[in-house]
């Protein structure tokens, strides 16, 4: 079953484009990465899905229901962590979380305490006294307290120290293992790479690629480094080679195609060192943005 389906989702702010004809599906139980630089339309997409803003055209369903028409029903099972946390700053953390929980049926006190303990969040403090990172923690607890079926994260790690990031990812993985679907928006590729099963790449308001992480990394490009005397750029200038650079007897390039071609080219040379690796998502990503 598809948890999210976006059909030609388009949002214009007046005349300026937010997103245009965005199509993707998120399947049940997967961790779906949504990557793109700032201003590419990530938050616009999420806010449209949540009914905070309304699409100019196109539509989207969540759990098979229209996200605008049935927004209030759909949001019962969504946990949302916005990129910037703004809460009623005069409230205490505990009161805010109780308030948040009051929108859902059931008692979540125990769950709040548990999450707060994991994230090392002091529940007795006032929101306005909290640092950026601590506000983020409030957001995390708030977003997860009702054990949502769909967790939407918009740049979730900003302000968290590496240790907290790790705990946070652990928490997200646990929720995922328990069956929650994760929609993870980020511009930090390494975190998407480690966590997500599939990613959509968004650029200037349009999706340019939706791919399995493994496909993106393995089936496409190899990153190759060659070191040795007499190497020249010329002999490696053939179909499938990109980003060829030569520096201090070291040749670096990306290759897409039959690896045997490269093997044959290397054959005549005496090489000191050879490294063939999968490019990082970052490097693939840069490729899409060139």
């Amino acid at each position: 079953m598809n948890i999210i389906e976006a059909n030609n989702l388009t949002k214009y702010y007046g005349k300026s484009k937010g997103i245009e004809n965005v199509n993707f599906t998120v399947k049940e139980g997967e961790i779906f990465g949504f990557i793109g630089p700032n201003g590419a339309g990530k938050s616009t997409t999420i806010r449209t899905l949540l009914g905070l803003i309304f699409p100019t055209s196109g539509s989207a369903t969540i759990f098979g229901k229209d996200c605008i028409e049935k927004g209030h029903e759909v949001r019962r099972d969504i946990g949302y962590l916005p990129s910037e946390m703004f809460f009623y700053y005069k409230m205490k953390v505990w009161d805010l979380l109780k308030y948040s929980a009051s929108f859902f049926e059931g008692d979540y006190s125990h769950r709040i305490e548990m999450l707060a303990e994991t994230m090392e969040l002091d529940l007795t403090r006032k929101i306005e006294d909290l640092s950026y990172g601590n506000k983020k923690k409030v957001g995390i607890v708030q977003g997860l307290l009702h054990s949502p079926k769909l967790i939407m994260l918009d740049e979730p790690t900003g302000g968290l120290d590496p240790l907290m990031q790790k705990k946070f990812f652990q928490l997200i993985r646990e929720e995922n293992q328990k069956g929650a679907t994760i929609f993870f928006s980020s511009h930090i590729l390494s975190e998407v790479q480690h966590l997500c099963h599939r990613v959509a790449i968004i650029k200037e308001g349009s999706i340019i690629q939706v791919e399995d992480i493994s496909t993106l990394q393995k089936n496409n490009y190899k990153k190759i480094m060659l070191k040795g005397e007499n190497l020249s750029k010329k002999s490696f200038n053939f179909e499938g080679i990109t980003n060829l650079t030569m520096e201090d007897h070291t040749l670096r390039f990306f290759f897409k195609g039959d690896i045997n071609q490269v093997k044959e080219k290397i054959q005549p040379y005496k090489v000191e060192d050879l490294l063939i690796e999968d490019p990082t998502l970052e490097e693939i990503f840069m490729h899409y943005y060139e």
Binding site: R47, L50, G51, L52, G71, H72, E73, V74, R75, R76, I78, Y80, P82, E84, F86, F87, Y88, Y89, S100, F103, F104, Q142
Partner: peptide
């Protein structure tokens, strides 16, 4: 105060 993002992402209709 930008708290609308929190409030309106709750399972509640705006008219409520």
């Amino acid at each position: 105060d930008k708290t609308g993002e929190f409030l309106m992402s709750m399972p509640i209709k705006r008219y409520q």
